[in-house]
Design a protein around this nucleic acid. Structure first.
Lengths: 227, 227
DNA sequence: GGAGAAAATGTAACGCGTTCTACATCCGGA
DNA sequence: TCCGGATGTAGAACGCGTTACATTTTCTCC
């Protein structure tokens, strides 16, 4: 994988050019279009990876261990996921999707968009800090991903954007709102990197996010009021 | 290195507990306190790493190749840098320090803090895009770094903060300005990650930064005017 | 200028991500 | 029901980060 070329779409999706992988970079719901037994294997592999991550962080997610724990052969893991990093990025996407669903169903209190956003973040962070090693693995994998994971990373971005947008209660997704939300997502990912590296506490992260959310959304709502 | 513990200072700096490494996590100027020959080796190793990075990105920076190219033994590379990642993070810090110096000496035009900040970014990005593979290596290493690189990453944060603060021309570093600058730095690092992964063009990055800078600093200057 | 410590060298070895290969098994269609 | 390709298995093998070690070179200090 000596990729990189400044502009590349990491194209895949060709029907079955080679030996036709099951799901690969499908940015849709995980394991869509798989036979039940395959879907089960797919999910089992992800679950094993997350377990190992929870136990020992990124280093403990060893592909042989993942294979053993999910009861499949090493080659099978690689049939479903082209690399350890792809696997972990998909896992992170699933985590955030779960979080997003929780946000949809839950009542989001708070007067302003900024307040609701912070409410959600304050609800999410404790969940993360219950399991620092797990997010050490997932977050570092996501930030380390190379161009071959572009599809998965784009999906991750979408999920995050949706999560924050509906947290803010801004269903009317104007371009401006989208930009604001993307900025928040960027700051959050950077903060998570600091957190998993042990350079910021959960409190630090929340304080930082509070500043960012306030600055970005206060200005945004003013702009909207003006228009 | 199975680190992690939510709160950890990655303590080093003990005078010479073990076999006394030369510089290690010294967050000061690189290779400070080294004999000339050692300082030369230290810089040569970094230079080799950057060359290899420029030629083939993260994967091409192979420790044996770094050793060969700098004319030292593999073990010597590891005496100066505890891991490939530490090495690359130090290299990134040096790059940003160089950029920061350029900013200090250069006249920064532009009326508002936001405009000057964007001016600097517009000046820096082309330099990065001349060498995408180099920054693929450096940026991904920085984001992948684990807790053992906390000291280097903190230093990186300081350098970035300083760079942006003086770009904005805000020498009066109030806590609020500092927060704003940190947010910009976070957004920038996230954007760089997207860029090296081939998911955003240089234009995308600049547009995104423009939005962020505008939102954050417009609001900030208002707040300052009010006080 | 010589002794002892520190630094550097060269090389072998280990661990884990990834690839490859030969074989077994499953599944959908004629 | 049986065939053929896709899927899964087991295990060897390769590359590179990292460590260990025996040996030589270079400093430091007296």
């Amino acid at each position: 994988m000596t990729e990189q070329s400044t502009t590349e779409t990491a194209g895949e999706e060709s029907a079955s050019t080679q030996t036709s992988r099951p799901a690969l970079g499908s940015t849709r719901s995980p394991g869509a279009g798989l036979r039940p037994a395959q879907r089960a294997r797919y999910m089992r592999i992800i679950a094993s990876a997350e377990e190992l991550a929870s136990e020992g962080g990124y280093d403990a997610v060893q592909m042989r261990a993942v294979a053993d724990r999910s009861g499949v052969a090493l080659g099978t893991v690689y049939r479903y996921f082209p690399s350890k990093n792809h696997l972990l990025v998909v896992a992170l996407v699933l985590e955030f999707e779960t979080a997003a669903e929780a946000v949809t169903t839950a009542e989001i209190p708070g007067g302003s968009a900024a307040e609701r956003l912070m409410g959600v973040l304050r609800g999410v962070m404790p969940r993360l800090s219950e399991n620092p090693l797990r997010y050490d693995a997932l977050v570092r994998a996501a930030m380390f991903a190379d161009a071959s994971s572009a599809a998965e990373l784009d999906h991750l971005g979408e999920v995050l954007t949706r999560l924050f947008a509906q947290a803010a209660g801004l269903d009317i997704v104007t371009e401006e709102v989208l930009n604001a939300v993307r900025i928040i997502a960027d700051v959050w990912m950077s903060s998570l990197v600091s957190w998993v590296a042990g350079r910021q506490s959960v409190g630090d992260v929340l304080a930082h996010m509070d500043t960012a959310v306030t600055l970005v959304f206060d200005r945004l709502t003013e702009l909207q009021r003006a228009s």
